[in-house]
Simulated scan of single mutants.
Amino acid sequence: MEVVETNKTFWSNNSVLAPTEPPYYPLHERPETYIVPIVFLIIFVVGVFGNGTLVFMFAKYPNMRNVPNTYILSLALGDLLVVIFAVPFVSIIYFTERWPFGETICRLSEFMRDISVGVTVFTLTALSADRYLAIVDPVGKRAGAVAHRTTVAVTAGIWVLAVILAAPAGIFSYLRSEDTGNGKIVVCNPFPVYLGPSYPRINVVTKLTIYYMLPLGIIATFYILMARHLMQAAAALPGEAQHQRQHIKHVAARRKVAKLVLAFVVIFAICYFPNHVFLMWFYFNPTVERDYNHFWNAFRCVGFCLGFVNSCINPIALYCISGAFRKSFNRHLFCCLCPEVAQGRTWTTFHFHSSGQHFISTFRKTEHFDLSTLNGPEKTAV
């Protein structure tokens, strides 16, 4: 949901909201006209490349198909949806005042945005629950076919729920035409007039609760329980030396994945926080016409962009945190840049001399790429 300023009018997703006093600024005089499209181009390229690489690796390497990686695949697919079916279209609202793609694309883009948000936050919640159970039971009792089938069922349920919750955006969005005095504007509007003036507020509060506050509260609860269990396990260590050493070894492996999930959660919370703050302020501030200024205009632009940045940043976080994913990603990048070398099966050693120091980097290409384990008995987590 986006708000743009036109002549004496606010538009939410380019829909009329409230009369305003600030003067009209032509598109070519607005900084966001030039900045936002560049940001969205970067989001599109990074999102397609990063998430596409994740999906490709999951499809190619069977040893990556474990419980946490199944959820991460779900995140990547949800991000790909919004990057491909929403980013190229919604970015144009900052440099044109006429929606050029027709009503079908209008509904599709709004629908895909809500599906992506739902899949992301519900998957993060499921991942947090899975990490808590893995910490509590680190010896592998949950591993195996039963755990995998359960994960697939939960993931399918997440997508079904996300589609159901996104249905109103796909059904009610439409093209609305309005004359503002500076020309005719055609906008993609998710709030049809026949649903009444209270519908936008209900929509904003519902999304804040279902897509943000409630899931983050559940995730925080799981991580608090996780921390308490780890402290209790550490306190019991001296009693059973060998057993506890094995227990702590398994827990330490799973803590790495828990930290990765926590990084995803923090990124999500930061990316969507400004947009929720702005929408709540805009729809529930009785003096919004008077208070809207350059600060709030910049704030809404930042919130709008960050909401889509979340769809491309998870692979970057994964690359920085996970050695297994970084190794696999670098391998595929090397294959793309030097395919004739990548097809070989021999050891290749590169020698670098810098400041009198000798550094050797060795790469080996084989028919099967074996990822290094990150979380012990659960095979490989990216």
Rank of each mutant, 00 (worst) to 15 (best):
183 G>M: 02
183 G>R: 00
183 G>A: 01
184 K>Y: 00
185 I>R: 10
186 V>C: 03
187 V>G: 15
187 V>D: 13
188 C>W: 10
188 C>A: 12
189 N>C: 13
190 P>W: 04
190 P>G: 07
191 F>P: 01
191 F>H: 05
192 P>Y: 05
192 P>A: 09
192 P>R: 03
192 P>D: 06
193 V>C: 07
193 V>A: 14
194 Y>N: 11
194 Y>C: 07
195 L>I: 07
195 L>T: 04
195 L>H: 12
195 L>N: 12
195 L>G: 07
196 G>F: 01
197 P>T: 10
197 P>I: 01
197 P>C: 04
197 P>R: 09
198 S>V: 11
199 Y>I: 06
199 Y>W: 12
200 P>N: 09
200 P>Y: 03
201 R>F: 11
201 R>E: 15
201 R>C: 11
203 N>K: 10
204 V>E: 11
204 V>K: 04
204 V>L: 05
205 V>N: 07
205 V>E: 03
205 V>R: 06
205 V>F: 09
206 T>E: 08
208 L>F: 15
208 L>Q: 14
209 T>G: 08
209 T>S: 14
209 T>V: 15
210 I>N: 03
210 I>M: 10
210 I>H: 06
211 Y>K: 02
211 Y>C: 04
212 Y>K: 02
212 Y>N: 03
212 Y>T: 02
212 Y>H: 03
213 M>D: 03
213 M>H: 00
214 L>C: 02
215 P>I: 05
217 G>I: 04
217 G>W: 05
217 G>K: 08
217 G>Q: 07
218 I>P: 00
219 I>C: 01
220 A>L: 14
221 T>I: 13
222 F>M: 05
222 F>T: 01
223 Y>L: 10
223 Y>S: 10
223 Y>V: 13
225 L>F: 10
226 M>L: 12
227 A>W: 09
227 A>H: 07
228 R>M: 14
228 R>A: 10
231 M>C: 01
232 Q>S: 13
232 Q>R: 15
232 Q>G: 08
232 Q>N: 14
